[in-house]
């Protein structure tokens, strides 16, 4: 009782204090805003400008000046681009979903004081630390159908030789596998940190109430982990939509367009064909698509609403 009134008085005092700190948040935000606007804005505006031109510095025959919306119109009917968009969507969905399930399960599994778990946890984090180029190369050698170690080892357990990245039918699955391998640790580290930050008491109450492990998981752990899970999914999704190095090194976008994701196509248009006007238009369309996906995701999960509610507390 007395504590409650003290708390209320305290709240009153801090709110008054907070009213006087009107500039404080902007001072805190200043460095971020400065960096964003100084380093980030120019490339953005430049590329927007270029997307309305026919800039193709390598081709003396091309019209380099203003072309208005021609690039965007061309992009709408570009079969290869939309094929890439579809592929990227499938790739991202599969990779992020699998990573999420694995990461959550592993976070809970490793949240025990069993011997050797600390070491194993550190080892599990290693894949995401390795540079994507090396990841691509090592998986490319391992996945060679006749000379690679993967088929060699699988042969021992009687699993037939797979074509992995060398066949149109299995290439996408192979690069998804590599992506899951590389980035599950990323989601794991975030979710694990979130798990470690959870207060003990709800779990203790659940135990006292006699809840089973399954019930505790779905009704206590997951709801409390929601914001962290959503953040992990959001960040991973944005990066998965832009995957390039690993896929390029393993399949170069092939065989026959099977793994020709957006970033590989963009790289081709921008830096193989050096068609920068068209390439910039494609990049902007990509960015808008990613933004739409993010907005849908954020609204669907009610993420910002939850976050805002928590912050009003």
């Amino acid at each position: 009782m007395a504590g409650a009134s003290v708390a209320r008085a305290a709240q009153g005092a801090t709110r008054a204090q907070r009213a006087g700190e009107r500039w404080a948040p902007w001072i805190l935000l200043a460095p971020t805003l400065v960096i964003m606007n100084v380093v980030g804005v120019y490339p953005l505006l430049h590329s927007l400008w270029v997307s309305f031109t026919g800039y193709k510095p390598s081709d003396p025959n091309a019209h380099q000046g203003w072309v208005g919306l021609k690039n965007y119109a061309e992009a709408m009917t570009d079969g290869q681009f939309w094929h890439a968009v579809l592929l990227t969507g499938a790739f991202t969905f599969a990779s992020v979903a699998l990573s999420l399930v694995l990461a959550v399960l592993m976070a809970i599994l490793f949240n025990r004081p069993l011997p050797g778990f600390v070491l194993m946890r550190s080892v599990i984090l290693i894949p995401m630390l390795i540079t994507p180029i090396a990841v691509g190369l090592i998986w490319r050698i391992m996945m060679m159908p006749e000379l690679g170690v993967l088929n060699y080892l699988l042969g021992f357990v009687g699993l037939g030789p797979f074509q992995w990245g060398s066949s149109r039918t299995t290439a996408l699955v192979s690069v998804i596998l590599v992506d899951v391998w590389q980035w599950t640790p990323f989601m794991f580290i975030i979710i694990f940190a979130g798990l470690k930050s959870l207060p003990r008491s709800p779990f203790e109450s659940a135990q006292i109430d006699g809840a089973s492990a399954w019930q505790t998981f779905w009704q206590v752990t997951v709801p409390m982990l929601r914001p962290v899970i959503i953040i992990a999914v959001l960040l991973r999704m944005i990066d998965a939509l832009r995957t390039y190095d690993t896929i390029y090194i393993i399949t170069r976008g092939g065989p026959d367009f099977a793994t020709d994701v957006i970033s590989i196509y963009l790289q081709r248009v921008n830096f193989r064909f050096f068609d920068l006007g068209y390439g910039s238009a494609l990049s902007w369309i990509t960015m808008i698509l990613i933004l739409i996906v993010v907005l849908i995701f954020v609204n669907l999960t009610g993420f910002l609403r939850t976050v805002n509610e928590k912050e009003a507390r």
């Binding site: 060679m144 159908p145 006749e146 074509q163 992995w164 060398s166 066949s167 399949t251 092939g254 026959d256």
Partner: peptide, 12 residues
Amino acid sequence: CPAGVEGFDYPE
């Protein structure tokens, strides 16, 4: 051709 030839480049 050997298996996997669809994905072969120079190194393979």
